[in-house]
Design a protein around this nucleic acid. Sequence first.
DNA 1: GTCTATACTCTGATAGAC
DNA 2: GTCTATCAGAGTATAGAC
Lengths: 213, 213
Amino acid sequence: MGRKRKCQNELVAESDREFVLTSAARLFREQGFDHTSVKEISEACNMLPGSLYYRYPSKESLLVDLMRLALEQASTALLKAFQEVTDPAEQIRRAINAHLGLLVGGSDMVYVLLFEWRSLRGAERQEMIDLRDRYEALWDSKLRSLSELGLIRPDIDLSLLRLIGIGALNWTATWFRKDGYYSSEDIGDFVWRLIRDSIINQPLIIKDTNGLS
Amino acid sequence: MGRKRKCQNELVAESDREFVLTSAARLFREQGFDHTSVKEISEACNMLPGSLYYRYPSKESLLVDLMRLALEQASTALLKAFQEVTDPAEQIRRAINAHLGLLVGGSDMVYVLLFEWRSLRGAERQEMIDLRDRYEALWDSKLRSLSELGLIRPDIDLSLLRLIGIGALNWTATWFRKDGYYSSEDIGDFVWRLIRDSIINQPLIIKDTNGLS
DNA sequence: GTCTATACTCTGATAGAC
DNA sequence: GTCTATCAGAGTATAGAC
């Protein structure tokens, strides 16, 4: 088997993995992990249960692999938001909207990563926690650099800010409706303004004074 | 059977109900609804499965009744916070801390109300949603009255404020640890300051000017 | 109101042919 | 790598005695 052929197989295997995990994620989001049977998952992948057990040794291990892919998606979207612009405030605003967009509309996997942690135990639960920590560390890193630039009020606890901010975004997924009154952007910008008005370290600017202050 | 006797029975029945639901709530919080068997619940109540089915026609119906009691607890705590003081800002600060305290330390039932909604379907899911809406309506009512008093910036969307604020508090329950770095009060006051600095409609006060502004 | 005993279903997982 | 066939176990719920 030549090198090129091997590479092709790896690509096929990778897209196979994504197909399985994407199908499973939709079911898990709609019905919950516990209320989705292996039979349903395999049907959604056009397989039979036995074939799934060739790929994953257990239902839980499939969930863990799904969460790994979800972390990659979330991290990629976050870093993209940071890299698109140079203005720190705009970076945060875009990151908030990227997180929220992925969660409520873009990726069932990210939703599952955030809401199905209770289905895992022991070592698998710990791996899930580690995945989330790695994602939140990206936020922490950005917040620390903004703080070092003097852009955040020094009395703000950065870890609490991250926990509360991400929490506000995450909970949105429990009530958000695609056909509801608020769009993902409405919500993201609201959160952004809430945080901005409270934490940004800058000369106070009185609204509607046309810069005459 | 005399009236007094009947009244006693009702009290016993009520405390029986609370005992069953409190025991179940602890299990549901620790293991999740789906990973708690009827056998475990009945054991925690010093009963056998058959006896539980005398009280509730199904496992789900027990969960719904538990959520009804949780709503009562949360509403009572919230109204108490509103009534303890007259200063509107302090009312909100206390309400935030009451919600958070109940959620992370005071009541397993409130935790279950907020995190086990995915275990219910159809009419029972809808009843759970109605319960939550009734609780959030208490917040809405208070926020509207503050707004009418001119204490909240008129450009703030009160519904979004409620959704995002409660969301930030609720998500806390996913990472809070009793022996962790932050106390419930640390977190509640942080959220309160975040909101206060962003929404309160008042003359801007420059920090550390000793009132000379 | 609680107990004993059990029916019935569903599901995660396995063995082995192809 | 997928299929067929099936097992073993768990879990909800019920019937009926006490």
